[in-house]
Computed example of a mutant assay.
Amino acid sequence: MQLIHDATLLESYIEKYGIRQHFPSEVVNHFCLYSASIGDAICTQGEHVTQLYLLVKGKATVSYVAENGKKLIVSFKQAFELFGDIEYIKQIDALHTVEAASVVHLIGIPIDSLHTYAASYPPFLQLLLRELTEKFQLKSRAFSFSLTHGALTRLASYLMRVMTADDGGQLTSPLPTSRTSDIADHIGTTSRHVNRLLATLAKEGIIERRKGAISIKDWEKLEQLANQSIYA
């Protein structure tokens, strides 16, 4: 990640998301703005957590690597999102790896400053409670979705999630098909089955597979297949 030396841009994000109301001024004074490119690690599973991060632009993936080395994409996140809240509360190392899925901007907040100035600050504690509650709700919804919908519906929902821009519109850049293993891990099936499902979607004119990438050709049909459900 790269540090952005732009106080005006930092202040614009603080104002846009009403961030100042959640932190005492002593903590706000320690805010730093960072940028990360696609694939850059924001935090890595098992590493010591030194900062809380607020995602204020772009998308990120949250993944977990099991003891057998298998990687599972747990969720997708976009602004406004908080990373490191559980680790801060429990004072543990990072539970997951968070990587940029697009160009992202994040506000970094030193954990030490939170312990010193915000540990008993009601607005900050309310923010933590809200974020943890929302994460619990999303995980419950995603678990229920996986149990009650077939692989094709889960794939359609996944594609809608990763191909939706921050403003709710459709991304124009194609999705690399080299990520089929990630897709398979996330929707709970095999890479071979994902390839069969992608072939089905291509045959029906919903997607196009060309030059190692996937493009959405019929967003409306994809939305119908997804049953208006979007993976968290």
Rank of each mutant, 00 (worst) to 15 (best):
S181D: 12
K71R: 15
L55K: 05
F76K: 07
L128A: 03
H186G: 00
L225R: 05
A118D: 08
K203D: 15
F136C: 08
E67L: 10
D40W: 01
E11D: 15
S191R: 14
E220R: 14
T172D: 14
I207E: 07
I187L: 06
E223N: 14
K70W: 05
S215F: 08
G212C: 09
M160V: 12
G84S: 07
F124W: 12
V104W: 00
A41N: 13
V74M: 07
E134S: 10
D166A: 15
L175I: 14
V28A: 06
S102N: 10
K217P: 07
M160W: 02
I109Q: 00
V194N: 03
T116N: 12
Y121F: 15
T44G: 00
L72W: 07
C43I: 08
P176T: 10
T116Y: 09
A165V: 03
R196V: 13
W219R: 15
V194R: 02
I89G: 04
S215D: 09
S37Y: 03
I214V: 15
F143P: 00
T50Q: 11
F23I: 04
L52W: 01
V194D: 02
T116M: 13
A213I: 05
E208Q: 14
D167H: 07
L114P: 00
H96W: 05
A94W: 07
A41K: 10
L55F: 06
A101R: 07
L114G: 02
L198Q: 10
I230Y: 12
I109A: 00
S102E: 14
P122S: 08
R20Y: 04
H115V: 09
H22A: 11
L106R: 00
N29S: 14
L114I: 13
A36D: 06
I230V: 12
L54N: 03
Y53T: 04
L95D: 10
G84R: 04
I187P: 00
R154I: 05
I183F: 06
E208T: 14
G58F: 04
I89S: 10
K70A: 11
L128H: 04
V103M: 12
L3K: 13
E204F: 09
L201T: 10
L155M: 09
T180P: 00
G39P: 13
L159F: 02
E220A: 15
H22D: 11
P174T: 08
K139D: 11
H186D: 00
G150Y: 02
I89V: 15
V56R: 02
A213V: 02
E87C: 08
E11Y: 05
E26G: 05
D6Q: 09
A142K: 13
A79E: 15
Y64I: 04
N68Q: 10
Y53E: 02
L55Q: 04
H149C: 06
F80W: 12
T116R: 15
V74Q: 08
G168T: 11
A199Y: 10
T189L: 03
V49F: 01
K139W: 09
Y17S: 06
L52R: 04
P123S: 08
A101C: 07
M1S: 09
A151D: 11
T164G: 06
H22K: 03
D218T: 05
G39E: 06
V56G: 04
V104E: 00
L82R: 04
G150L: 01
G58L: 08
I111E: 00
G69W: 07
